[in-house]
């Protein structure tokens, strides 16, 4: 069942610190022209973003030996089983910034690859912010009913396979609802998009599974290799 949390994705702004983190920034000196470029690229990404989302509640949750059955949607793995262990229902979400972000990046990379890389990072910061807003609004929605939601959990986190992606897209009717599709090699298109599963749980009953252990990039993270936490909740710098 589609649900409509009270949230607007209009006017989302690029968190510059986060954008810089995606670019591998570690406190280097930024001269004025680079600062200007960072601001300009963040503006371009903000202007091009057409964020849209779709959310749906699915119940019942049935814990199986090798994963979870969410009203016919099978989610494999121990991690999602832990994540939804206390859940009475699941919430699926899909978010995208739209395909014009790709066009913007393809346009700028022919003029300046440096700009393209910065726009790309700015867009990643934007989609994360959109996800956070949606997650917060879902939490509020369920808190009103005396419930709570877990943090979001995406395909590729922990042992939840990427192969689940097309099923989530289908259940959300995401192509029709927000123009979000999944390619045959399991890439979300538009690229600046996220799908995730949250559990509807009794208040205070879930434990966070975030951090490096749930990150799909944990074996390749540049920060982690240096013994530093990226600060980002969900996916590390590549």
């Amino acid at each position: 069942m589609r649900i409509f949390p009270d949230v607007s994705l209009e006017g989302i702004h690029v968190d510059k610190e986060e954008m810089l983190r995606y670019l591998g920034f570690r406190g280097q000196e930024l001269d004025e022209s680079l600062r200007n470029s960072i601001n300009r690229c963040a503006d371009l990404a903000e202007q091009a973003a057409l964020p849209r989302f779709v959310t749906a509640e699915s119940a019942p949750v049935r814990l199986l030996e090798n994963g979870v059955d969410l009203d016919g949607l099978f989610l494999a793995g121990e991690d999602i089983r832990l994540h939804l262990g206390q859940a009475s229902a699941g919430v699926l979400m899909g978010v995208t910034l739209g395909v014009q972000m790709e066009r913007l990046i393809q346009y700028h990379r022919r003029q300046s690859m440096a700009d393209a890389v910065m726009i790309d990072a700015a867009a990643t910061a934007l989609i994360e912010q959109a996800c956070n807003r949606i997650e917060d609004s879902l939490r509020k929605l369920y808190q009103k009913q005396g419930l709570d939601v877990t943090e979001r959990f995406s395909c590729g986190y922990g042992d939840l396979p990427l192969e689940t992606q097309p099923d989530i897209i289908r259940v959300l009717d995401a192509p029709r609802a927000i123009g979000l599709t999944c390619s045959s090699s399991l890439i979300l298109i538009p690229q600046k998009s996220v799908t995730a599963v949250l559990g509807v749980v009794p208040p205070g009953s879930y434990r966070s599974v975030r951090g490096c252990q749930s990150c799909k990039n944990r074996n390749h993270c540049l920060y982690r290799k240096e013994g530093v936490f990226c600060g980002y909740q969900g996916q590390a710098a590549q």
Binding site: L23, G24, F25, R26, Q28, L34, S37, I38, S112, M113, A114, V117, M118
Partner: peptide, 14 residues
């Protein structure tokens, strides 16, 4: 050596 980061490397290359 971490004195400059990715956008600077690319801008220099360009």
């Amino acid at each position: 050596s971490g004195k400059i980061f990715l956008p600077q490397l690319i801008a220099a290359a360009e």
